[in-house]
């Protein structure tokens, strides 16, 4: 294992976060706070409790997931896309590093940023609503799994994208709508039967449901199904990355 290489990539990527603190941390925290103010404090006070949980508190897991998904993807995709765009990826590809080490460096850094961001948002939420976390270990597990899985997904997007438009395409047109329609702001039990069935095809539902269970002990789908779906998606991403490096797709002619 080339640990110095993993460390070098990880620290290099993390230094980018500190250099762009405003964009990396402050911006998502402010936008999430706005959600809490609007949906939690302003509108939430007029909403009835869902499954015995105040609306303001109910949306916390969904909002955290929304931010984690988008930020994990953005961090990881930009991390690998930028060296491709500038051409500095030659150094990564000509270094004595395996695919596992490359992923540990890039995905590790992106997931770390998202994890820290998730904790900051959790603390921010505590200022606006009464929070309770019934299963803190499961919450931490979901947090880590989501950060890692969607950072891997972002890494894939970063390799796939050959321009900045494509880099934004999947997060904006697919991930954000799926997150919004995945029960961030409502329980899918509130939907008519047909739409509830349709919603079950949205993978983000399982993430949000499982994460919400770790907070309040209630969920739209079984916790094990949520966990299984998340782990399953992580393995799909891992396999896709392995395949890309094995075949050199988009990386080596």
């Amino acid at each position: 294992m080339n640990l110095p290489a993993v460390r070098a990539i990880y620290l290099f990527e993390m230094s980018r976060t500190f250099r762009t603190l405003l964009q990396s941390v402050v911006s998502p925290v402010i936008s999430t706070s706005l959600y809490f103010v609007v949906f939690g404090a302003a509108i939430g006070s007029r909403m009835t409790a869902i499954d015995g949980v105040d609306y303001g508190a109910f949306i916390v897991p969904g909002l955290m997931m929304l931010t984690l998904l988008t930020q994990s993807i953005a961090n990881a995709s930009f991390g690998i896309y930028f060296p491709q765009f500038t051409g500095t990826i030659y150094e990564i590809l000509s270094a004595p590093i395996s695919v596992v080490e490359i992923v540990l460096g890039y995905v590790g850094a992106a997931a770390t940023k998202s994890f820290v961001l998730g904790l900051i948002i959790l603390l921010t939420a505590a200022f606006f609503v009464d929070l309770r976390i019934e299963h803190p270990l499961v919450m931490a597990l979901f947090l880590v799994l989501t950060c890692v899985t969607f950072s891997m997904f972002g890494f894939l997007i970063g390799i796939w994208a050959d321009n900045f438009e494509k880099l934004q395409l999947v997060p904006l047109l697919i991930v954000t709508p799926l997150a919004f329609l995945g029960g961030s702001f409502y329980s899918i039990d509130m939907l008519p039967p047909l739409w509830r069935t349709v919603t079950l095809f949205n993978p983000v539902v399982y993430l949000i449901s499982g994460f919400r269970w770790s907070f309040y002990g209630t969920s739209d789908v079984d916790i094990w199904v949520s966990l299984g779906a998340t782990v399953g998606f992580m393995f799909v991403c891992a396999f896709a990355i392995w395949w890309i490096f094995k075949t050199g797709w988009r990386l080596k002619p």
Binding site: R7, F12, S15, P83, T86, E91, P96
Partner: peptide, 25 residues
């Protein structure tokens, strides 16, 4: 390499340090 490919926003020190680490040193 032939092309001048550099990390525009990084310092000289950071980019050289990264290179050394990448090669396991």
């Amino acid at each position: 390499p032939q092309e001048l490919t550099t990390d525009a926003f990084e310092t000289v020190w950071a980019t050289v340090k990264l290179s050394r680490g990448l090669f396991g040193k």
